[in-house]
Amino acid sequence: MYSPAEKTSERSLVLITGASGYIGGYVAKDALKAGYSIRLTARTPKVETLRKEYGSEAEIVPLDDIVSGDYSEALEGVSAIIHLASPLPASGKHEVAASEHLRFSLDGTMNLLRQGAAMGVKKMIICSSILAVTDMDNMQNAFNSNHTYTAEDWNPTTTKVLLGSEHHPWWVYGASKAIAEREVWKFANEHPEIDFTVFQPGFVYGPTSGVSIPPRGSSEIPSTPFLLYSNIFKLPFKTGFPPVVPLSVDVRDCARAHVLALSAPPSTEVGRKRLLLSAPSFTWAQAVEHLRTVRPELRERLLSEAEINETYGAMPIGGVARVDCERAKEVLGFSEFISWQKMVEDCVDDLLEVEKGWKFD
């Protein structure tokens, strides 16, 4: 499944940030399977949980401030960085302000990259978002158009616009990711000795089990699986999530891509490894129709087509936008993404198990 770790490199120790998160948990475990040694950073409250999770398989370094914290201990002896730490919109019970999102995405990323460069790290892999590629000012057309997204597409948002007025949390998240990524590529131009890969995954769904810290309630599960959950099931509460997000990728493919990037050949052209990750698009109506067939016992819990149409109003939900992932397949050496049908099935099966232990406030 994976290319072997680079035995020819002087070191095969990989620093992973955000390993207590949804994607990060999979990345850390997949990196171990691929033969790498891993070191994980985590906020102090999560350190002990990660130590119990990984035991002697991983080093855990406490780091509470990604924006201005000292990474020298975490970077000692490291040959590659996989940077995943970033808060999602409406994380937990509290929304994250636009200025804070920008601090985490921009200042937090650049703090790590600058210190990594100073410590001689030669490979840096960053997780951005498909929202850094799409124009969030026209969200309907961004996802429901005949456009095919490529690495040449950019979210045009500026810092001035981001901080100048109120925006939807997902708009803020996408804007901060785009602004941060532009700075990453400027930094890459200044450091040709470092091999950079930046991923733009679609909305990440799939099973949540097996990651480092299991959720205790619906407000604690990763936002994107709950986005799927809340758009296909009848729920006794409102979620505030946007209804139309057809561009997506399975969390297992997303993690696999980050690990494969560790052994992918370097590019001589800055920005060449800006890699989009997305499986074929689907709509919530298609997901419900599929589940009615493969999980007939859930029919009473699933939204009807009429209820979906009522929720979305006049907004088209065709999900006809496409993502060109050929460059990612070429660079990483894998052929196909997990189908949206399997992704939906596995995500729902997992969440139905998880919800048995939920405690609602």
Rank of each mutant, 00 (worst) to 15 (best):
P201I: 04
L277D: 01
V270Y: 06
P169M: 02
T109A: 12
P87E: 07
V198L: 09
R256C: 02
T293Q: 15
K52T: 13
E193W: 11
K359W: 00
V331L: 11
R182A: 03
N141R: 15
D107K: 15
S68F: 02
I221Q: 07
D253C: 00
R43G: 06
I194V: 14
A287H: 06
R272W: 12
V47A: 03
T109W: 11
V67F: 00
L277C: 07
R299N: 12
H290N: 01
D361A: 13
V249K: 03
E10Q: 15
P156F: 03
D346Y: 10
V14E: 01
S219E: 14
R182H: 07
A261R: 01
D250E: 03
L40P: 09
K329T: 00
L352W: 00
T208L: 15
K177Q: 07
E76I: 11
E310C: 12
Y36P: 03
W170K: 00
L13K: 11
L131Y: 01
E289T: 08
A142C: 09
L112R: 13
E57L: 08
I232D: 05
F233N: 02
Y36S: 01
P225F: 14
T208W: 11
A175K: 04
P214T: 13
G108F: 14
G240T: 02
D70H: 05
D349V: 05
P87L: 07
D250V: 00
G108H: 13
P236N: 08
E353N: 01
F241P: 11
D107A: 15
S129I: 03
K186H: 11
L275H: 10
A19N: 07
P214R: 14
A58K: 00
W340V: 00
A19I: 02
F203A: 13
R43C: 05
K359F: 01
S165C: 11
H168S: 04
A97E: 15
A287Y: 04
M119L: 11
S165K: 15
T17Y: 13
R43D: 08
A34T: 01
H167D: 08
A142L: 06
K52N: 15
S37N: 14
K29F: 03
S86Y: 13
N138D: 15
E353W: 02
R51P: 08
I16H: 07
L275C: 09
S223M: 08
A328R: 10
N231L: 12
A264W: 01
P225G: 11
Y173R: 05
V249T: 05
L106R: 13
A19E: 09
R51M: 13
L277H: 02
V245D: 12
F282Q: 04
A306Q: 15
R51H: 10
S230Q: 06
G69A: 00
C254F: 06
R322A: 02
R11G: 04
A80Y: 03
R327P: 05
S37H: 11
V288I: 05
L298D: 04
V184S: 00
V294W: 12
V348Y: 05
E181M: 10
A85V: 11
R252C: 00
K7E: 08
N141W: 12
F196R: 04
G116D: 10
Y22M: 09
T239G: 10
P243R: 15
M119T: 09
L262A: 05
L102A: 12
E297D: 14
A188K: 02
L291F: 04
A58Y: 02
E297T: 15
D107N: 14
R103C: 08
D346C: 08
G313C: 13
